[in-house]
Computed example of a mutant assay.
Amino acid sequence: MSNLSDTMDFTRETYDPATASSWLICRTCSTHFPTSDRSSVTTCHICDDPRQYVPPTGQTFTTLAELRRTHRNEFTAYARDPRLTSIETTPRLAIGQRAILIRTPRGNVLWDCIALLDDDTVARIRGMGGLEAVVISHPHYYSTHVQWARAFGCPVYISAEDRAWATMASAHTIPLTDAETEIVPRSGVRAIKLGGHFPGSLVLLFDGRLMIADTLVTTPAGLGDWSVDSTGATRKGGRPPGLNTFTFQWSIPNMIPLRVDELARMWDVLSSYDFRATHGAFRGMDIEDEGIKGRVLESMQIQARFMGNETHPLMSVRMS
């Protein structure tokens, strides 16, 4: 595991919200392009990739200035652990993911990023102690991350493998090269490189809580409550067998699954860590379960089996 220095050495760039507010933002994925010239950016490289899409209505762009007139960010503290606060844009914008503000004694870390950055959001986060760092799971959520880093004077960490997807260079952007990195020394916040969805797709571990974005995609069956029946009585047998909790996709919107060898490689990485909860890409995708790690393995094996890999070595792996 690598440890970042107590004082990250980078040249802080000026936050210029007036200029950035006129730059183009893809309406489908919220990627931010450093130009206001609509004739120079007519397509989005993120949406042209098979892991994303252009909607039937075609490629369109907006700007931060436009979004600030029509949208706002909502902050929702997580009831089970008030150290976590979801930040999401309403009405839903682009992919609709949340960012999660993690409060630690060593400072706040923002997990993932959303496009809308306005004065109210900056003021509210500063009132909560500001940001020591931003960590982004994968390129679909890069959005306006350079503006967030400039606004809070902090580094933003992305995987070195995926940095080519970023639309602008910035001294604030720090590529992660190691399999595991502690974000903010002695904070207990660790970025873990799992790959899969993108070569450098990350998860973030904090005090037994695994922020998974859609590196692991939380399923409806994973969120289901089988503890009681329709009368309110305790359900006999509990959770039915054979239900997955997660799915593992190379392309989520286009439903292209990861191959079984990649699942096995991801498990080899994740099996070294202990966690009791997962927090997915959207608010409400939170699972509290001491056995959640076993459900990750079970979900991988369910996917492998239905892809015709009954004899793959992954199928014989058991929780220790």
Rank of each mutant, 00 (worst) to 15 (best):
R12W: 00
R12K: 03
E13Q: 05
Y15N: 03
P17F: 02
A20H: 00
S21C: 04
R27Y: 02
P34M: 05
S36Y: 02
R38F: 02
S40Q: 08
T42S: 13
T43G: 08
T43F: 05
I46H: 02
Q52N: 10
V54I: 14
P55R: 09
P56K: 06
T63H: 01
R68Y: 00
R69T: 00
T70A: 02
A77H: 07
A79R: 13
P82E: 05
R92L: 10
L93T: 01
I95V: 10
I95S: 05
A99H: 04
V109S: 04
V109Q: 03
D112N: 09
L117W: 01
L117I: 01
L117N: 00
D120E: 08
T121G: 00
V122L: 03
I125W: 00
R126Y: 02
G129M: 01
G130E: 01
V135I: 14
I136L: 09
H138L: 09
P139S: 03
A149E: 00
R150K: 02
G153L: 09
C154L: 05
P155M: 02
V156I: 07
A160F: 10
A160P: 11
R163E: 12
A169T: 13
I174T: 06
D178Q: 14
I183K: 06
I183G: 08
V184W: 05
S187M: 08
A191L: 12
K193S: 15
G196P: 09
V203Y: 03
G208F: 13
L210I: 11
D214Q: 05
T215G: 10
G222Y: 11
W226A: 08
G232Q: 07
A233G: 10
G237P: 11
P241F: 12
P241Q: 11
L243C: 10
T245C: 13
Q249G: 13
R259L: 15
V260Y: 11
D261G: 12
E262H: 10
E262R: 14
M266A: 14
D268L: 12
V269K: 15
S271N: 14
Y273P: 08
R276C: 04
T278K: 06
T278Y: 07
R283C: 07
R283P: 12
M285N: 11
E288N: 09
E288A: 09
E288Y: 09
V296Q: 12
I302L: 12
F306I: 15
M307W: 06
G308L: 11
